[in-house]
Simulated assay, not measured.
Amino acid sequence: MAIPTAAPACVVLAHEDPVQVRRLVEALDPFPVFLHCDVRTPDDVHGAMTEGLPSRVRLLDRQRTGWARWENAAAEIAGYRAALAQTDATHVAVLTGSDYPLATPDEIRALLEAHRGRSFLITHPLPHPDWRGGGWSRFRYRHWAWRKHMLRLPVPRRLPRDVVLTGGSQMKLISREHAQAVLDVVDACPDLVRFWRRAWIADESLVPSILNSPALVPGFADEHVEHSPWYIGWDGTRMKSPPWLTTADAGRLLDRWTGAGDELPQVFARKFSTERSSDLLDLVDAAVGLRGQRRTEVTAP
């Protein structure tokens, strides 16, 4: 069997802003991309997002994704399945269409080569300090999302046995081995899938809970790094999603690719849009290009 390539296969979940999505796809070159576009995205937007993409981009079957919906987790799982079947990448990165890399491909490869078999994921076993009431109600009750509103059936249900309920980010950079472990659990435990269909914001808890449960994935505690490779510009206000990044964020953003002291770098960031962030992304591209050029000059014979 060939040795897996030290590179991420990138699962990108998108629903709007085709210019930004295509810019992201280009910035991820030469990594393989598995692109999911929300089935509710208008045909003209979907066409602008997907027509004429390079061969390293594969389209996932479209699902009705959206704010807080179970289908976000389902699309992520489908991305793992396609990435493992069609590439030999050592890791799988889960991004949204409003993300962007802060590092060159060589820098990302070097980070992954130094952490083969390990995932980058910050885990928050319940009680989660940032979730209301520690987050227990997300699981104890059945939920539905409707027009960015939470609908909850106020009848408690039994929590799954041998599962360490854990929160984490939708954005992940996990090892091939851990992605396969998630698929194995999902395929073997339909009862867990049924349970998470009605958990609140399943994509923030399904994969972290599976991986962080020793009964399901033994050894994960010693095989992951408690670090997020994403810079996210949370501003301290109570918002349902992070603020858009602009040129005012350039200094903080460009500091993150190296890490501070012994800290690991943040090689991705979010969130960006064509309307608000094009000038900032021009600066990012210029900085990344200069770093890559200097590295080539240093290593040239």
Rank of each mutant, 00 (worst) to 15 (best):
W131C: 04
E107S: 12
P42Q: 14
L60R: 05
Q86F: 06
L95M: 15
E113R: 05
Q63V: 14
L112V: 02
L121K: 02
V164I: 14
Q86N: 09
V94K: 10
A83Q: 11
A85M: 12
P105E: 14
Q63Y: 14
A110V: 01
S98A: 15
P127H: 02
T41W: 12
W146L: 14
A114P: 05
S137W: 05
A74P: 04
G47C: 12
A85L: 08
G47M: 11
P154R: 05
E51K: 08
D106E: 15
A78E: 15
R62N: 01
R142S: 15
E51M: 03
E76Y: 04
F120D: 01
D61P: 09
H124V: 01
Q63C: 10
Y141M: 10
A114Q: 10
L111S: 02
G133A: 04
V57P: 07
Y100D: 02
V57Q: 10
L151M: 14
Y100K: 08
E76D: 05
L53S: 11
A89N: 01
P127C: 04
F120N: 04
P156M: 09
P129Y: 03
P160H: 03
D61G: 11
R118P: 01
V92W: 10
R157V: 13
P156R: 09
L59F: 03
T90H: 06
T50Y: 09
P127S: 03
G79Y: 11
W144K: 12
T50N: 06
H149P: 01
F139C: 07
R161D: 15
N72C: 15
R158M: 01
A89G: 00
H91D: 03
V57M: 05
A68G: 00
F139Q: 08
R118D: 00
